[in-house]
């Protein structure tokens, strides 16, 4: 799409077009870095605000579950139609799922350990 500024004839330009006749495409700046606007305090988006540890943990578990489901789907696809998927994609998905669940389990173990230490305060 192009923009073309055609001026109305008035006192200043007597009907001639503007000296800067803008033609061309409108291009959006689609990549920007938030660090360029450090001084402006932007409100944080709502989905980053978590109510409690339980909410955070539930969200993390959902994401981990998605990884597992993705790995499962890829494995099944590998069994059904081996040409449609690369071997390394399946292996990488499985490894990502395993690492994610190990990470989440480590966090959960830490919380449980802290809870046990608190309950055995005597």
């Amino acid at each position: 799409m192009s923009i073309f500024i055609q001026s109305e004839p008035n006192f200043y330009n007597s009907g001639r077009p503007y000296p800067l006749n803008l033609k061309g495409d409108i291009v959006n700046v689609n990549q920007s870095d938030s660090r360029h606007y450090k001084d402006i305090s932007m409100p944080a988006p709502n989905d980053n605000i978590a109510g409690s540890f339980g909410d955070v943990f539930n969200k993390a578990l959902e994401k981990v579950n998605e990884e597992q489901i993705h790995a499962d789907e890829l494995t099944q696809q590998m069994a059904i139609d081996p040409d449609s998927v690369d071997v390394h994609e399946v292996m990488i998905a499985a490894e990502k799922a395993r690492l994610s669940i190990t990470f989440t389990k480590t966090i959960a173990d830490g919380v449980v350990r802290a809870y046990k230490e608190l309950t055995s305060l005597r």
């Binding site: 390394h88 490894e95 690492l99 190990t102 480590t106 966090i107 173990d109 830490g110």
Partner: peptide, 21 residues
Amino acid sequence: NVQMINGSKAMINKAIEIGRA
């Protein structure tokens, strides 16, 4: 590239070991 993946995996595993006392 596979070696590279294994290297990053080892790095993540080491990072997980931080949390284990």
